[in-house]
Structure formats: C-alpha cells, structure tokens
Amino acid sequence: GLPELREEQQARSLLRQRYLRSLLAMRDAQVRFRMYERVHVEARFGASDIDVLNFQVSDLQTPIGVQKEALLRCPDMISYSLEL
C-alpha cells in the first residue's frame, strides 16, 4: 500500500544520498582497488558515473606500470578502500 511505498522511498533516498556523499568525498583521494583475478591496484579517484559502472581515475598504479588516466570497470571490482 501507500505507507509501504513511502517507507521504501524514504529508505532508498537515505541510502542513496549517503552513498553519493561518500563518492563525492572520494574526489582526489588515493583509493586501493581489490579486483577479481587477485588484481590489486591503486589510483587517485576522480569521479563515478551515476550507474556505478565506471570509475574515472588518475595515476593508476598497475602491476606493470603507471597509467596516467584510466577508467576502471566497477564489475571488475570486489572492493575498494581509502582513508579519510
């Protein structure tokens, strides 16, 4: 019914706002990415697209060298971490 819809909307809204805030706060931060196939990389975070499919990063440190500008695929990631 309507009350349940409102509850769902409010929950979704709170959760999404918090997530967007966390993404915005990541701008220019050093982020470590743990990816599939035991791949670990680190880069300076730039921005995310809104569907959380791509991360735009700079100075990506890969196992074989630095790529100045890169796009990382979120489906390739298991987790990412940073320090505030």
């Binding site: 599939y36 990063v57 890969t62 695929r73």
Partner: peptide
C-alpha cells in the same frame, strides 16, 4: 573529466 583526460579502460579486457 573523461572529455578532458581521455582515460582508457584498464585492464583492456574486463576481468569479469
């Protein structure tokens, strides 16, 4: 950022 920096996907072939 993408327009300005022209980033390329890494890795070239998706891991997953």
């Amino acid at each position: 950022n993408c327009d300005r920096k022209q980033p390329k996907y890494w890795p070239v072939i998706p891991l997953k």
